[in-house]
């Protein structure tokens, strides 16, 4: 238990895309974060939403950039992201209020999907439909930005060429899948 809550250990588990580490961090700072957000007069449901988005943004930074926190603690880093999200939310809702008359039907865009094209949204849905093995290799390469040799190190693939051929086969499948809906 002590080993698992060790910040260094948590960070390396986050880098390795460990979802249980994510839950652990979520529970660890939840109370404090929600109290912090209260001062901005944001309602509970919205505060919860911001906290969840903050946790996810933190996780994705660890996962895609292999983030190593040099000077700040995990908590400082998390609250830093959170603060940005709170301000962005306040700014957006403020603007939304002032321009309400002009943009009545315009939904507040989630900060997590800035200008995601319909094509990207469709692709995102398809990525949850392809085979587990295809999803894994594509995720490691395109999302986590691991090189082909890093993928060989971290998975059961025999060698670089196997990864390459599997990856290109999976991309082909995905393109076919996308073609069906286009």
């Amino acid at each position: 238990m002590e080993r698992n809550t060790d910040p260094q250990n948590l960070e390396s588990r986050l880098r390795a895309d460990d979802k249980s580490a994510l839950e652990q961090v979520y529970k660890l700072y939840r109370e404090e974060f929600l109290n912090y957000v209260k001062r901005y007069k944001i309602d509970d449901a919205q505060a919860m939403d911001i906290y969840q988005d903050t946790i996810i943004a933190m996780h994705q930074n660890f996962v895609t950039k292999q983030l190593q926190l040099q000077q700040s603690s995990l908590k400082t880093y998390l609250f830093g992201i959170g603060k940005n999200k709170v301000f962005r939310y306040l700014k957006l809702s403020d603007r939304h209020l002032r321009w309400e008359a002009d943009f009545e039907d315009q939904e507040l865009e989630s900060p997590e999907e800035p200008g995601l094209s319909p094509q990207q949204k469709l692709l995102a849905r398809k990525l949850n439909q392809i085979s587990e093995r295809c999803r894994e290799v594509l995720l490691l390469f395109y999302f986590r930005n691991l090189t082909i040799s890093e993928i060989v190190e971290q998975t059961h693939y025999k060698d670089v060429n196997t990864v390459k051929s599997h990856k290109s086969r999976c991309m082909k499948n995905l393109k076919t899948l996308m073609g069906v809906d286009q």
């Binding site: 979802k19 969840q52 994705q60 997590e112 990207q120 949204k121 999302f143």
Partner: peptide
Amino acid sequence: QMHMAFKKAEYDNLKAQLQAV
């Protein structure tokens, strides 16, 4: 395209996970 799509797909999955928590 792939990176952004994965980001969105992972976001959706994680969001569901955290909502369950």
